[in-house]
Design a protein around this nucleic acid. Structure first.
Length: 186
DNA sequence: AGATTGATCCAT
DNA sequence: TGGATCAATCTG
């Protein structure tokens, strides 16, 4: 079973989407290579009041895509060297997105192997592996854009989903403590 | 704990 | 226009 998630999948509450993305497959065709990664770690950035979100200080040229239609990629550069891959969620004009932070490679490429699995633990490593940069930004998560998400029938038990505060957002005060990071063990 | 690295944003 | 900031990663 390989079903490409329709764009309407992303026009739902952001926290639910974040949880539902665990066990789904991020598939990319870039530079004549095909990669597939089972998503194991995500973070939600939900709404204009989320102080950890780029949208918290209002609409700018950079974060405008977060206010746009659901199912588009939001890619940006951090610390001058790492691209972060997010998928825009929720209705138009409501700024929200899910950051894809980690996964297990099932097709393509070569990387560090741990316990027989190729682990991408960290959002910068994931985009490096998939050769994603901001040229993907603002495109839709569908086949013709080169990157999309599939349901391949993997079931994740609700009891296997772990939560924690988000990484690297200590500045966000009370929002930094919210359990908006979801992950499953490798 | 410190260096890396550059786009973005806002105050000077 | 300049400088502070930053959803990270590596090395030690």
């Amino acid at each position: 079973m390989r079903k490409v998630l329709p764009l309407k999948f992303f026009n739902r509450p952001t926290l639910a989407i974040a949880r539902d993305l665990l066990g789904k497959f991020l598939v990319c065709k870039t530079h004549d290579e095909k990669f597939a990664v089972m998503i194991t770690e995500v973070e939600a950035y939900d709404g204009p009041h989320d102080k950890a979100s780029h949208a918290h200080r209002g609409r700018t040229k950079r974060n405008e895509i977060m206010f746009g239609e659901a199912g588009r990629w939001y890619v940006y550069l951090i610390y001058g060297m790492y691209s972060m891959l997010n998928i825009v969620t929720g209705p138009k004009d409501y700024p929200a997105a899910v950051l894809i932070r980690g996964g297990i490679v099932t097709e393509g490429g070569k990387w560090k192997v741990k316990d027989g699995k190729i682990i991408l633990n960290g959002p910068g490593k994931l985009t490096q592996f998939l050769k994603i940069d901001n040229t993907l930004g603002e495109r839709r998560a569908e086949k013709k854009s080169g990157c999309w998400i599939e349901n391949r029938g993997v079931k994740i038990k609700k009891s296997d989903i772990k939560k924690s505060p988000r990484i690297g957002v200590e500045y966000a005060k009370e929002w930094a403590e919210k359990p908006y990071r979801f992950y499953i063990d490798h």
